[in-house]
C-alpha cells in the first residue's frame, strides 16, 4: 500500500486508473487487460438481461477482486438516469454510480441541465455520485456543491481518442475542486493520461483507449505507468517554462580550445 492513495467518498484506492469494460473483444482479453492495468475500480453498464449470453463481466470482476462501478450510459434524461442508478443499486448492491446523462448520440456530450438535476436527486437518495461532465469549471463547481463525490470532466468526446482539448479548463477545475477530479473520456494514448495527471487530476478513467488498441493488454500496462509517471511528476513539481535556454553545465572553468577566440 502506498502513502499516496486515491480517496473517493469513504474508500481509498492504490490505483489511480479507473477502467471501463466496454469495447473489449472478449472477456478473456478484458480480464488480462484489467490485470495489466492494475485497476481497482471498473465500470459496467446496465442492460436488459439476455439469458442466451454466456459468461458475465460481473464474474470476471468478482474473480479479480475489482470493485464494480455501474454507470448510467445511454440515458438522455435525469429520470432515466435516476431509475437506472436505482436498478444498479438493487442489482449490484452498491450505492456508487457513475452518472452519465448525454444530450445526443453523435457527440455523447453531457446534458448539463439534466446532469445536475439527476446528481441532486441521487445525492439526496444516498448515492455516491461520480458525474461524467463537460470540461466546464462552473458546472464542475455546481456538481461539487450538489454533493458529488468526484468530478469527471471529459478531455474530448467518448471514444474519440483526441486527448485533453482544453488543458486550461482542467487546471481551473482542479484549482477549485475539493473532491477528486478524474479525466473521463478522450484519452487515446499514454501521453494523454500522463498530461491529465500532470494537470492535477486525481485519477483517469478510460476504456476504449485500451480495449480498442491493437494490443489491449500492452496498452493497459502503458496506461498504468502513464498514470504513475504523471502523478509523480505532478507531486515533484515541474520546472517553469522559459523562452530561452538555461545551461545545465557550468560555464565557469571552460578551457580555451578555440584558436579564433582570445584566451585572455
Amino acid at each position: 500500500m502506498s502513502d499516496d492513495r486515491l480517496t473517493i467518498g469513504d474508500t481509498s484506492f492504490d490505483s489511480r486508473l479507473i477502467m471501463g469494460t466496454g469495447g473489449a473483444s472478449s472477456l478473456d482479453v478484458l480480464e488480462r487487460s484489467l490485470i495489466a492495468s492494475g485497476t481497482e475500480l471498473t465500470t459496467v453498464a446496465m442492460r436488459r438481461l439476455d439469458p442466451t449470453v454466456q459468461g458475465s463481466v460481473l464474474s470476471v470482476l468478482e474473480r479479480l477482486g475489482i470493485r464494480v462501478l455501474p454507470n448510467t450510459a445511454g440515458c438522455f434524461t435525469a429520470g432515466e438516469a435516476v431509475l437506472t442508478a436505482r436498478l444498479a443499486r438493487e442489482a449490484l448492491g452498491t450505492d456508487w454510480i457513475k452518472l452519465e446523462v448525454v444530450a445526443d448520440e453523435r457527440t455523447l456530450l453531457p446534458d448539463p441541465v439534466e446532469l445536475l438535476d439527476a446528481a441532486e436527486t441521487l445525492v439526496d437518495d444516498g448515492f455516491t455520485v461520480l458525474p461524467y461532465t463537460n470540461d466546464d469549471p462552473v458546472l464542475a463547481r455546481r456538481l461539487q456543491d450538489a454533493g458529488c463525490a468526484a468530478i469527471m470532466p471529459l478531455g474530448s468526446p467518448i471514444g474519440s481518442g483526441l486527448g485533453i482539448r482544453n488543458p486550461h479548463n482542467f487546471q481551473l477545475i482542479v484549482e477549485s475542486a475539493q473532491v477528486p477530479v478524474i479525466l473521463d473520456a478522450g484519452a487515446g494514448t499514454a501521453s494523454d493520461v500522463a498530461l491529465a495527471m500532470e494537470l492535477g487530476c486525481s485519477a483517469v478513467m478510460l476504456a476504449s483507449a485500451v480495449t480498442r488498441a491493437q494490443e489491449p493488454v500492452l496498452m493497459a500496462e502503458a496506461m498504468r505507468y502513464a498514470v504513475e509517471a504523471g502523478r509523480f511528476a505532478r507531486r515533484a513539481g515541474r520546472i517553469p517554462r522559459r523562452h530561452f535556454a538555461e545551461a545545465s553545465s557550468p560555464m565557469a572553468g571552460m578551457a580555451a580550445l578555440d584558436p579564433e577566440r582570445p584566451a585572455f
Binding site: G22, L30, L58, L69
Partner: peptide, 10 residues
Amino acid sequence: IEVLTAVQGG
C-alpha cells in the same frame, strides 16, 4: 416490466 443486469460498458 424491465429486467436488467450488468454488461460490459463505460
